[in-house]
Design a protein around this nucleic acid. Sequence first.
RNA 1: GAGGGGGUAGCUCAGUUGGUUAGAGCCCCGGACUCAUAAUCCGGUCGUCGUGGGUUCGAGCCCCACCCUCCUCACCA
Length: 518
Amino acid sequence: MKPFYLTTPIYYVNDAPHIGHAYTTVAGDVLTRWHRQRGEDVFFLTGTDEHGEKVMRAAEKNNVSPQKWCDDLVESAWKPTWSALNIANDDFIRTTEPRHEERVQKFLTGLKDAGHIYLGKYEGPYCVGCEEFKLPGDLIDGNCTTHSRPCEILSEENWFFKLSAFVPAIIKHYEENPAACEPASARNEVLAFLKGEVSDLSISRSTFDWGIPVPWDTKQVIYVWFDALLNYATAVGLTDDPTSEGGKKFAKYWPADVHLVGKDILRFHAVIWPAMLMAAGLPLPGKVFAHGWLLVGGEKMSKSKLTGIAPKDITDTFGVDAFRYYFLRAIPFGSDGSFSWEDMAARYTSELANDFGNLASRLIAMIEKYCGGVIPAVAQSPELSEALAKTVVEADAAIVALDFQTGINSIMDFCKKVNGYVTLTEPWKVAKDESRTVELNEILYNIAEAIRALAVLMHPIMPATCEVLWSSLGADKTLGTIAAQKISEVATWGQLPAGSQVVKGAVLFPRLESANEA
RNA sequence: GAGGGGGUAGCUCAGUUGGUUAGAGCCCCGGACUCAUAAUCCGGUCGUCGUGGGUUCGAGCCCCACCCUCCUCACCA
């Protein structure tokens, strides 16, 4: 079976990451962790996009070289953010790395040799003050908005990619494979665009030099998007000799199963990227999934405006796992969703502290109090085990389809059901009657077993917390690591062995101090 | 401007091919319980379903008009 290969966008390093970037990356991490627990071989790629005019300008502003600017930001901001969020990526690619640049050049040369690249003229409004080409949308009455003076229509010689030649094939691809671009609203927009007029793409720039040189015309650099998109393939060995290590890796992992993207960059991934691959005769990715925006106060988070919230602002209060949980639980993954501190606090308290964390606390306390801290004999509750089986089927189907909300929902429904079981069976009352010890033990075993399953199911979403819960059940000593637990087997009842030593630890999700009311 | 979503309880949202008293979670109120992070469980209050017309025996779901809001309309990561 082909390994499951998922990518996030490579993020543009003109600033530090905000929660919008983290949203995408966490989603990718949860999905790949889930696939790993299904027993699949997984490759999870993220990275940074470091070429282009904006990075160059940002570096100039700070009086450093573009390369140093990128190095600093990657090491001080991007990588630390991902490790703080417990992101388990298998690779981190930077577009300034030789492994990327060399392969991009080889790929481009290949396209040229195959006749897909030609020399053409790019013509557009050019502002002498800015020394750059403008987009029609950037102009007001033909004037540059920064210099308030008319632009000249200039043209420069650029290398063009015959994008238009692939349009019919791409349309056919999406019509025959609806799953290749999701959600449906995104696919419709892409198809609407494709059925309009699509012209060829200028893939080189000569007005600045921070980029990968066009191999046969080194006065020009490769257009940043053309460069950036290729990261998904260069990271796994694109263009390497099939017998080499890189070539074997490419054969093993390509094509990617899922490209996760924000809807702002959908078109690059759903139109340009497949055309590039078709031109090279390579298989297309299984799915491009465009998720929605995180809205803050009704407006979209912006990297250029200062509405960006750093993940740390949230994790300092709620913790990393609550951060990972919240966005996937609260927002349907293809839709926009508003972030608010109030909603986050409400969900944290109700769902994580009260429903999930407290369930663990009540079980551990009772096992300690009534069973001497040891898991009692294996028993089975048909009610709970059947509910669990149903939960696993639902959650697995939903999460594999990137419907995180439905998946987490069904897991949390099961959690609520277990709380109901505890209240209904009233083990604290049964414990007062010495003739009912067997019944008491059965009840407590069933709760423990249900929580064992909850820990496994929640592990991809909240790894650190679930590992703590796992070891407090004593399961690490008897069942192995939580990461090794298979989704396909999690519903098999009776796995937690009798005699496991339960350890009471810190509360999983401490109640929030009511200090931050304002 | 053109095309496409959406406007349903205080909040976030579900609502199949039109059909009896419009649902869920959260919040709030009441009860039960005490193993637990004053947590849990049960019950309850709350809605002119954006506005105005129309079709129909019957419309949140269909049609028309209008208002509001979000998105797309290419090379801006």
